[in-house]
Amino acid sequence: MNYQHLTTERLDLTAVSFADLAELHTLHADPRVWTHLPSGVHTTEQRTRADLEAYTADWERDGLGYWTARRRDDGDLVGIGGVRLRPTGTWNLYYRLAPDHQGQGYAAELVRAAIEAATAYDAETPVVAYLLDHNEASRRTAERAGLEQVWRGPDRDVPGGVRLVYADRSLPPETVERLH
């Protein structure tokens, strides 16, 4: 199956591409989508371009990756999300939505599609979400998708931050250790 283009009830999911650069930069440069991690704001288009280079390489190498999510009815950008194979041997679940589309169930729809695609593509590889403890909306989305918390502890990248790791299954201790 080709996972580069999928549809859900309300979303059109297309593998990220450089054609999306301007819109994805606008999304990632908006401080409102980084309230839980202000240092994550993209201050240059080059930062977004570097991410897109990595994300398009994921599709080429792994056959699955992050999608640009648009509304099916009008093509409006909803956000970006999907799964990305990490060196830890897990699929990293990611979702970031434009402020105008938050709170409308789009994140749940995107997450469901990502988990279903990852499971269909490679059921042996766990799906994992890394969240900051104070990002309650993201935590609720992960929990509603059936992920369970497998670790909680200090964040390596955010001084004083607490990182949560959620997964779609129980993980062996050595895998959990590699995740944080």
Rank of each mutant, 00 (worst) to 15 (best):
D12M: 05
F18N: 11
T26M: 12
T43P: 04
G75Y: 04
A69V: 02
L147R: 06
H25N: 08
W34H: 15
L6S: 07
T7D: 05
L97W: 02
E60T: 14
D73E: 14
A129M: 13
R84Q: 14
E174A: 12
T7I: 06
Y95C: 05
R47N: 04
V16K: 06
R144W: 03
F18W: 12
N135F: 01
T141D: 05
P38H: 09
A117N: 04
R84M: 10
L132C: 04
E136F: 07
A69K: 02
Y95D: 02
A120C: 09
L64C: 06
V162K: 06
D62K: 01
R112K: 08
P173E: 11
R70C: 08
D20T: 06
A54E: 11
E60D: 06
G40N: 07
P38L: 07
R86V: 05
Y66C: 04
G153Q: 10
G153R: 13
D168Y: 07
H42K: 06
T175F: 05
A142F: 09
G103T: 08
R72G: 13
H42Y: 10
L179K: 13
P31E: 14
A137T: 05
A29W: 01
T90P: 06
E124N: 11
Y166G: 04
D76H: 12
E60Q: 15
L110H: 04
D12Q: 13
T48I: 10
R169L: 08
T175R: 13
P87I: 07
R49V: 03
A57N: 09
S39D: 15
H5D: 05
R178S: 13
E174T: 14
I80Y: 01
R32C: 00
E116P: 00
A19Y: 01
E177P: 00
E109T: 00
W151S: 15
S170V: 14
A118S: 15
G160V: 08
W34I: 03
G161I: 09
A145T: 06
T35W: 02
Y130D: 10
P154C: 04
R61K: 15
A142Y: 09
R86G: 04
T43L: 13
Y94Q: 02
R169I: 03
E177Q: 13
H28Q: 15
